[in-house]
Nucleic acid binder design. Structure first.
Lengths: 127, 127
DNA sequence: ATTGATATTAGTAACAGTTCCTATTATCGA
DNA sequence: TCGATAATAGGAACTGTTACTAATATCAAT
């Protein structure tokens, strides 16, 4: 049974009201302004819970800490190899991928994640 | 300037002669049979170097340690949510993805990775 | 073959990110 | 208001990985 908690609300709200892809640490620093005593463990615990519940999305990039996304609509991400920033790729998501892959795979495919990498617009211009 | 090393050869060979997606730890344990004194740091260093050189591929899954793949041809991976094993998805890789994404993204897209998740054939049957 | 410059190593310490533990506090149905 | 228990703060512990250092291996020039 899940009980309500003000901290969890704040974490959810923080993610819903931003368009970037913050780390747990970033969310933690932000929420500290309203909850000076909030613990980093609480942030991690609730980010995990919320992503299990499907209210947010966890993005593991392989470079640096995990990111989180309040937008759970399927979409692709891009990580810059230079600044490690994560951006959305705004193109039509290939919805048929799961079905396509299932044909050649004898297990159960529940979902997928597509990530691009390269140079972000910012780093592209300054180097 | 890169100098030859027997340890690096053994690491490369190990990855080339297997079809799974071992972790650094697994490679380390395997190679210990031929190089009892090899250090885990050496394995990590060479796996990084080899993947920078494009001789092998690094797979970051977001669940558990990184995996490595001696097959550098573009292909998709699947990770089981239950046993965390990583498998290949043997379907035609959507080569046009990068070009497609580039149209709607003002940075430079160098590559992508597609990962599926769900239940592997093994876990599907035993649960 | 010997030498010298330096890339690489083994071993270990340090580090980053995350999870776990425990006593205390907040939530919420009865 | 009370009682059961979910959630918390704070910090310790853990996992995967990288960094450090003295010793060793490689290899081009002699």
């Amino acid at each position: 049974m899940i009980k309500h908690s003000r901290q969890r609300d704040a974490i959810r709200d923080n993610l819903m009201n931003r368009c970037d892809h913050p780390t747990a640490e970033t969310v933690y620093m932000d929420i500290k302004e309203d909850f000076p005593n909030i613990s980093l463990g609480t942030v991690y615990r609730n980010l995990s819970l919320l992503s299990e519940l499907g209210e947010i999305q966890k993005i593991s990039t392989g470079a640096g800490p995990d990111r989180f996304d309040g937008n759970v609509k399927p979409h692709c991400h891009f990580q810059c190899k230079m600044c490690y920033n994560v951006l959305d790729i705004p193109f039509e998501y290939p919805e048929e991928l799961n079905a396509h892959a299932s044909k050649s795979f004898p297990g159960i495919i529940e979902g997928n994640s597509i990530q691009f990498y390269g140079l972000c617009p910012n780093c592209m211009n300054t180097h």
